[in-house]
Design a protein around this nucleic acid. Sequence first.
DNA 1: TTCGACCATAGAACGAGGTTCGATAATTGC
DNA 2: GCAATTATCGAACCTCGTTCTATGGTCGAA
Lengths: 237, 237
Amino acid sequence: MTGPRPRPADRPSRGRQRASHSIEAVLGAAVALLDEAGEPALTLRALATRLGTGVGSIYWYVSGKDDLLDRAIDHVLGGVLTAVEGRTGSDDPIDDLRVMAVTLFDAIVDRPWLGAHFMRRTDVQGNSLRLFEKLGQQTLRLDLTPLQRFHAVSAIVGVVVGNAADLGQEPPQEVFDGFVDRDEFLGRYTETWRALDAEEFPFVHDIVEEFDGHDDKEQFLAGLDLTLAGLRLQAGA
Amino acid sequence: MTGPRPRPADRPSRGRQRASHSIEAVLGAAVALLDEAGEPALTLRALATRLGTGVGSIYWYVSGKDDLLDRAIDHVLGGVLTAVEGRTGSDDPIDDLRVMAVTLFDAIVDRPWLGAHFMRRTDVQGNSLRLFEKLGQQTLRLDLTPLQRFHAVSAIVGVVVGNAADLGQEPPQEVFDGFVDRDEFLGRYTETWRALDAEEFPFVHDIVEEFDGHDDKEQFLAGLDLTLAGLRLQAGA
DNA sequence: TTCGACCATAGAACGAGGTTCGATAATTGC
DNA sequence: GCAATTATCGAACCTCGTTCTATGGTCGAA
């Protein structure tokens, strides 16, 4: 029953001692795999091949696949964080919140695999927590109770995650291969919906025409603005 | 290149001809496994063992694991649908929307494994689409454009999914074994958060006290009411 | 009654994936 | 220089989803 072996990530790496693979290289390759072919493409063997090493080596930098995914997410969230930080500073804190939420959403559009796990662990440290903090700082400028602030940030994150969750799971295998584009994919929805019984599905019939040329981002923005309108009302601004 | 073999699910079962296992039995056992130990517990072998059959038999009723999960989800969503239908009919459509959203959320609290896949496929038929329709029918009573209606429903579903997503993934393996209860689990959060630098994390410090005794449902309700307030504003009601 | 056609079941076998383990080189500290 | 630590590698193991083939069982037709 020995304790876990020491890993480079566990201690401050004092000077690089000619490591052919750093944790950054591992994470970068992992993100590349995810970007290229989605989450199922991230296997330890594929990662090892891409890095030109053996599977076992990866376990030196990472405790397992879950840890690998967590770190890869945190890795890209670092970029998102700096992107977010560069766009704050408006007069209106709610406008700032909006911009930040949109930035988050755009990041998930670029990397759909983020959607499923985005903001999974707002727990200990990491860029996930830092993003949470950055959002929350805007609420400090609003006339709210701490609890209201907390709920406001949770709600905004909820809207982002809830809408982004739609994105990260649909493409059966079309978008990657380009056999079918997204418009045609959505077209099948509208056809099916139009064929439904009008008596039993009045709502679907009411909206089915809008669904043609449907835009995920527009849908997200509408939901976000609904929530922000409620927040603005609550803050009495 | 032969077509798919006929399956009982593909045709109306005309009278039961002494089938020891029905599709309902398979789905029921699958849901039981999911309820007992979460998604990783649902393996075809475990399911076969529980049913007292072989793995191959399951493929008679289901085309694969994805199909199994989809049907299991649709199975429980059937119950959710009737629960939702029993609670509508108030004067205020937005109040009805609220009640329905809460019912959905409660269903996910009861079955955290639903969270990750909830409303995954609002596509063709199924109870998922029916729930979508039921929510939408309330918006027909509001003075909105079809597009606004669509966005409103999407936003509400987004809030439910976004907040429920938090639920379905936390318990590393504590809640199932009962080694650690949820309160103590959350207590670790507050400790870690309190230890953060106050200069760098002013927001987290502002809200950390509220996080003790934190209630997921309360958090969800606050976010939902924010969105509904925005909707009420938009509908001019 | 007998014989096929179809329903339904069962489990061995395959391939892919995550993880473990021991061997081994490379580097560092003394 | 020598031992301890650092880092690497891939074979082997186990689990899981899936496929395939074999085998009863039921029922209608000859």
